[in-house]
Nucleic acid binder design. Structure first.
Lengths: 209, 209
DNA sequence: CGCCACCAAACGAACGATCGTTCGTTCGAT
DNA sequence: ATCGAACGAACGATCGTTCGTTTGGTGGCG
């Protein structure tokens, strides 16, 4: 529960100065809310109670901030997938762990997640390619887990691992669009409903196809 | 099949002049690709082979272009939902029609769909509110159809219509992120796989929960 | 058929505002 | 006294937009 410390404005330490960490946090917030191109360095300065030019005491430029924020977002997801992956459990259970982990990351790091998902395309080409690779690896874990689940007999043999991974990640990633901390569901309830949807679908058993 | 006429660059009519339609089409393309704030009027002009200032012979400004493109996107979705809605069929079949219709709109109007989904937040406040209302109505049709499906016994009584509508639309809307015209699946195949996923989920019948 | 007036479309210079960034300076805690 | 942090003026570039001018196709008319 202590994960929800991301207040509205950065807290001031003993002196009136801010750390590089504060600058990156402010960038996460504004990039997520207004988009990278919709956020100016002066906007970021105002968010921290200083001038835009003062940010250059902490970072080398605006692009560096985007790279930093996006990399953090990607890193959060890769960490949770790593921990889910080494669990020794049936594939269907590991897939369930992936869903819960993804929901946890989005809710605990909503700004970095939003920036990662929406603003990566504005990265400098070199950094963008690296992020794309990380995302592909992440998706590959889902594909592999689904394939194993089919082999183990717990997942339907009719589904295609590639497009099914995309569908599952579609539901998961869309959380950054509709999640509000003030909502009536907490992370566990959301993950549970998502897993129920992904696992069983909406049609009553035995009907349609 | 004539729906796929959106070539790379606008075609020139008998003279060298362009219509307002060409300008809006170019705006759809660039707003979808680079984002609203990542696209300048001079960029749009270059896309059409003229100066940025020349666009003002056709539109009153950049915001008007965003409003126009987003409204077109919203309109496409509302049209298809209207046609699906008046069909006299079981709710589960109408839901299936909604899925197929949504996929068709995204694929036939990918640029307007992307701009509608990603750039609406940059609309002037008045226009944004109107778009939000339209999107709420659209989502409400899904909620209502799901509720009726449950009442009719074709949809699982365990699902919540509200969050399930969000999940289904998550899968549908994410298509704007991964669809490529060069892909191996056509609209019908994509819609069929989506419906199969939404209807049955990934777990074999009778297992898990 | 040739000419010319007309008019939308596009031009291109220019406006003030804002962009990302630089740099010499002040500030303030250690 | 020192040194990182923040200031604040200023840079060139680009932004959305304006406006007087130029262009080129069109329709009426002799």
């Amino acid at each position: 529960m202590s994960a929800v410390d991301a207040g509205a404005s950065a807290t001031v330490d003993s002196s009136g100065t801010r750390s590089r960490e504060d600058v990156v946090a402010a960038a996460s917030r504004l990039f997520a809310k207004r988009g990278f191109h919709g956020t100016s360095m002066r906007d970021l300065g105002e968010e921290l109670g200083m001038l835009g030019s003062s940010l250059y005491s902490h970072v080398s430029g605006k692009n560096e901030l985007l790279v930093e924020v996006v990399q953090r977002g990607a890193q959060f997801f890769n960490e949770v997938v790593a921990s889910s992956h080494l669990a020794e459990a049936p594939a269907v259970d590991r897939l369930r762990l992936l869903v819960y982990g993804h929901v946890g990351v989005v809710i605990e790091h909503i700004d970095e997640s939003r920036t990662f998902l929406f603003e990566s395309r504005f990265l400098p080409a070199a950094d963008r390619q690296k992020i794309v690779e990380m995302r592909d690896e992440y998706e590959a874990v889902y594909r592999r887990t689904i394939r194993e689940g089919i082999a183990e007999g717990s997942l339907s043999p009719e589904i295609d691992p590639g497009i099914t991974a995309i569908f599952i990640l579609s539901v998961l990633n869309a959380l950054v669009r509709w999640y509000r901390p003030t909502g009536e569901r907490d992370a566990d309830q959301i993950a549970a409903e998502m897993w129920s949807f992904v696992a069983n679908g909406v049609v009553v058993e035995g009907a349609d196809g």
